[in-house]
């Protein structure tokens, strides 16, 4: 029997559906769920941000743009925004340096079982409860905590090194939580670099720092940028770490927004601040997308 006979023999009812039907059928569940669980609440929040006050009880619904003037009306928010930004920059910067170094060590100096084990150890912070992770740091860095105890084994009269309730403490907690993103994105970027490219640089006279800054860092730039975005965006909105590790200094955009919802009960202001931050984050994305596309092309 010739091969085409089988195709021709198919019942006419089983005509091929246009390809978009299958695509739509596969996408529908997840987009329906996203609409229900993310887009609708987000739209409600967006609507709230134009209200004068939280619409509870018998309060009349008054539409206004005043919430978006918050940074103008309450100048202290600028300071808070700056604090969030600098925490974000410090955290991202430290993660970039430490994460890149760790990824480089994993790619260049390990193999097989040892590499698998080390990768799992890198991922550990992901699998521990965030609250436990952050609280355990308070035990370590408070005055008279584990850090002080450890130092005083060697130097009994040492002054306290405890730095709980400072900005570095917040950054420490955030770096601990978000470092795995940077290690993983850099690891993948470094893994794809041909060993011969590094050897070629060495054969042309490059020492290790030239190889690092002229070859490895530029070639791993997509990994660094992706990691930086994955870290920076959630970090500037973080509120748990600033609250627990920052104490009095831990006032960030994250905590201010959280306060509007849970303490001040000013949902419209909270939503307006949140959407302002979303706009800033999207601007950051728009700035970096060009860089990402360019490095993806090489």
């Amino acid at each position: 029997m010739p091969p085409e006979a089988g195709v021709a023999g198919l019942p006419a009812a089983r005509r091929r559906m246009p390809p978009w039907v299958a695509t739509a059928a596969l996408l529908l569940p997840s987009y329906a769920w996203l609409t229900l669980a993310v887009l609708l609440p987000l739209a409600a929040m967006f609507a709230f941000s134009f209200l004068h006050a939280t619409p509870l009880g018998n309060k009349p619904v008054v539409w206004t743009l005043e919430q978006y003037r918050a940074f103008y009306d309450q100048p202290y928010l600028l300071g808070v925004a700056w604090a969030s930004l600098s925490i974000g920059l410090w955290t991202t910067g430290i993660c970039a340096v430490v994460g890149f170094a760790a990824a480089l060590a994993l790619v260049r100096a390990t193999a097989g079982r040892a590499r698998e084990t080390l990768l799992i150890l890198v991922l550990l912070p992901f699998w521990t409860n965030g609250l436990v992770r952050v609280f355990s740091w308070t035990m370590v860095i408070r005055e008279g905590g584990f850090l002080d105890t450890f130092v005083r084994w060697f130097w009994p009269s040492a002054p306290s090194l405890g730095f709980l309730y400072t900005t570095p403490a917040i950054v420490l907690g955030l770096v601990h939580g978000y470092l795995p993103y940077m290690v993983l994105t850099c690891y993948i970027a470094l893994l794809s670099i041909d060993e011969a490219v590094i050897e070629a640089a060495q054969s042309l006279g490059a020492r290790w720092w030239t190889v690092l800054f002229k070859i490895l860092v530029p070639l791993a730039a997509p990994g660094l940028v992706t990691g930086a975005i994955l870290i920076f965006v959630p970090v500037i909105g973080a509120f748990m770490e600033p609250r627990i590790l920052g104490g009095r200094v831990g006032v960030t955009m994250g905590t201010v927004i959280e306060d509007q919802f849970t303490q001040a009960f000013n949902w419209p202001l909270g939503s307006a601040l949140a959407f302002t931050m979303l706009a800033v984050v999207l601007a950051v994305f728009a700035t970096f997308s060009g860089v990402l596309r360019r490095s993806a092309a090489t």
Binding site: D194, A196, V197, E199, A200, A201, I215, L219, S295, T298
Partner: peptide
């Protein structure tokens, strides 16, 4: 000179 050329792609 390497088998894979090993040019610096960037």
């Amino acid at each position: 000179v390497f088998q894979s050329y090993a040019l610096f792609p960037h």
